Amino acid sequence: MKPTSEKLEMQEKSAFRMHLFVGGSFLVFGLFSGSLLNLFTIIGLLVVIFAQIETVTFDKDLGYLIFKHQQPFICKTKIIKHLLQDISGVEIQKLEDSESIKYRVCLVLFSGKRCVPLTSYFSTGFSDKQKTAQVIATFLNTKNYGLDGFPRQPNLSEEMQWETVEEEIVHWESATATDSNDADARVKLAFALLRQDEIKNKEQAIACLKQAENVLESQGYHEDAMYVAQIWRAIWWRLLKT
Rank of each mutant, 00 (worst) to 15 (best):
Q85I: 11
I79R: 09
S127Y: 14
R114W: 02
E159K: 14
T124L: 02
P117M: 03
N141G: 12
D148A: 13
A133W: 11
I169Y: 08
E166T: 03
R114L: 04
E96G: 00
R152K: 15
H69E: 12
Q93T: 12
V90G: 09
L147I: 14
E159I: 07
S111Y: 13
P117G: 02
I79Y: 14
Q71S: 10
K94D: 04
G125K: 01
Q93H: 15
K143M: 05
E166P: 00
T164M: 05
E168T: 01
W162D: 08
R104F: 08
I74R: 13
K129H: 15
F139C: 05
Q85C: 03
C75L: 15
C75T: 07
Y121P: 01
T132W: 08
V165S: 04
D128Y: 11
Y121S: 07
F122R: 00
Q161T: 11
Q130P: 00
D86N: 10
I74S: 08
C106V: 11
M160D: 00
N155W: 11
T77N: 14
L107R: 06
Y121N: 03
V165Y: 06
N144C: 12
T142R: 06
P117W: 07
I92M: 06
Q85F: 12
Q153H: 09
E158Y: 06
W162K: 01
N155L: 15
T164I: 03
V165G: 01
S120F: 11
V108K: 03
V116F: 14
H82R: 14
E166S: 10
